[in-house]
C-alpha cells in the first residue's frame, strides 16, 4: 500500500497551481532565460540558417542562390541517399535494442550485485576514450593480418575473419564497437535512475510477497520509465548520427555497406562542396528524428510533466 501511495505522489496528484499569476510567469522565465539565450544563439539560429541553405546551391565558397526545392527533388531520386537511409536504419535497429538491454542489465548488476565503485569505474572506461581512438583501436584488434582477435581465431585453425572488410560483417562490427564504448555509460544513467527510486518502494513490494523478479518488472521498471525513455530517445538520435567509427574503421565500405547518412552528408559537404544539398539531407534526417521522437514520447508517455 505504501508503494502505491508513493507512485501516486510521483504522478503528481496534488495540484496547487490552478491560479497562476503574472509574477509566477516572470519567475519561470528567469529560470529558463539563460538556457533559452544559449539555445537561440547557438542552436536555433544556425539551424534556421541550415534550413534556408537547403533551398540554395551553396558550395561553401559562392554566394548562395535560391533554387527552390531542387535539392529535395534531387534527393528523392538519389539512389545513394536511399541506400544511406537504409543502412542507417539497419544500424539503429541493430544498435539501440542490444545497447539498451545490455546497459539495463549492467545497471541492475551495478545496483544489486556489484555495488562496488570499482565495477562502475571499470564499466565507464571505454567511454573515456575519444571516438576516434576507439575506432582506431578496434580496427587494429580486428585486423585480419595482425589483429589480436584474428590471431586467436587462427589458433583455433580458422582463417582470419574479415570483420571490417566484408559486406556481411562490417555493419555489425561497427555496431559492436559502439556498444562496447557506450554500454557502461548508458548503464550509469540507468543506474542513477534506479538509485533515485526510494528504497521503501522496493522493500514494500518485497514485503507484499513479490519475488525479486516480480518486484523488478512491476515496480522498478515502471518507475524507471522517464529515465528509460530518455536513454532510448537519445540512443536513437545518437545512432542516427553515427559518423566517427564509420569514417575511420570502414570508410563507408565495403560497397557502401556502412555508408551511413552522416557520412554521406559529410562527404557531400566537405569533399563534394555541395553544402546546399548536404543541408537538405540533414533536414530530412532532422525530420525523421523529430517524427520518431514524437511517436516515442507518445508511446512511452515520457512527457507527463504534470
Amino acid at each position: 500500500m505504501k508503494a502505491l501511495s508513493a507512485i501516486e505522489l510521483r504522478r503528481g496528484k496534488v495540484r496547487s497551481f490552478s491560479i497562476v499569476h503574472l509574477k509566477d510567469y516572470l519567475i519561470a522565465y528567469v529560470f529558463i532565460i539563460p538556457s533559452l539565450a544559449g539555445f537561440a544563439i547557438f542552436f536555433a539560429i544556425p539551424a534556421i540558417r541550415g534550413l534556408v541553405l537547403s533551398f540554395t546551391d551553396w558550395n561553401l565558397l559562392n554566394s548562395p542562390t535560391f533554387i527552390r526545392f531542387e535539392n529535395y527533388l534531387r534527393l528523392s531520386q538519389d539512389e545513394e541517399f536511399w541506400n544511406s537511409l537504409w543502412v542507417t536504419i539497419q544500424y539503429v535497429v541493430e544498435n539501440v535494442p542490444i545497447q539498451t538491454l545490455s546497459s539495463l542489465l549492467i545497471a541492475v548488476l551495478m545496483a544489486k550485485v556489484g555495488t562496488s565503485m570499482a565495477f562502475r569505474g571499470v564499466m565507464i572506461i571505454p567511454w573515456l576514450l575519444p571516438n576516434v581512438v576507439v575506432a582506431l583501436l578496434w580496427s587494429w584488434l580486428l585486423d585480419p593480418a595482425f589483429g589480436f582477435i584474428n590471431e586467436v581465431i587462427k589458433q583455433f585453425g580458422h582463417g582470419p575473419l574479415p570483420f571490417l572488410t566484408s559486406t556481411a560483417m562490417a555493419l555489425p562490427s561497427v555496431v559492436g564497437i559502439n556498444i562496447w564504448r557506450h554500454m557502461g555509460y548508458i548503464a550509469l544513467m540507468i543506474f542513477a535512475g534506479i538509485q533515485s527510486i526510494p528504497k521503501e518502494v522496493d522493500e514494500a513490494a518485497l514485503i507484499d510477497g513479490a519475488g525479486p523478479w516480480r518486484a523488478f518488472f512491476h515496480v522498478t521498471l515502471p518507475l524507471l520509465r522517464p529515465v528509460l525513455a530518455f536513454v532510448v530517445i537519445t540512443a536513437i538520435i545518437g545512432s542516427f548520427q553515427i559518423y566517427d567509427t564509420v569514417a575511420i574503421a570502414t570508410k563507408g565500405g565495403p560497397v557502401q555497406s556502412t555508408w551511413v547518412l552522416n557520412f554521406l552528408i559529410y562527404k557531400t559537404a566537405f569533399e563534394g562542396y555541395e553544402m546546399g544539398y548536404a543541408t537538405a539531407v540533414t533536414m530530412v534526417l532532422f525530420a525523421i528524428l523529430i517524427g520518431i521522437t514524437f511517436i516515442q514520447m507518445r508511446l512511452m508517455r515520457a512527457g507527463e510533466a504534470d
Binding site: F39, F43, A47, G50, I237, T279, T282, F286, I290
Partner: peptide, 10 residues
C-alpha cells in the same frame, strides 16, 4: 528538436 539537429549543420 535541437537535440536532433545533426551537429554538422550548426
Amino acid at each position: 528538436g535541437a537535440l536532433m539537429v545533426p551537429g554538422i549543420v550548426m
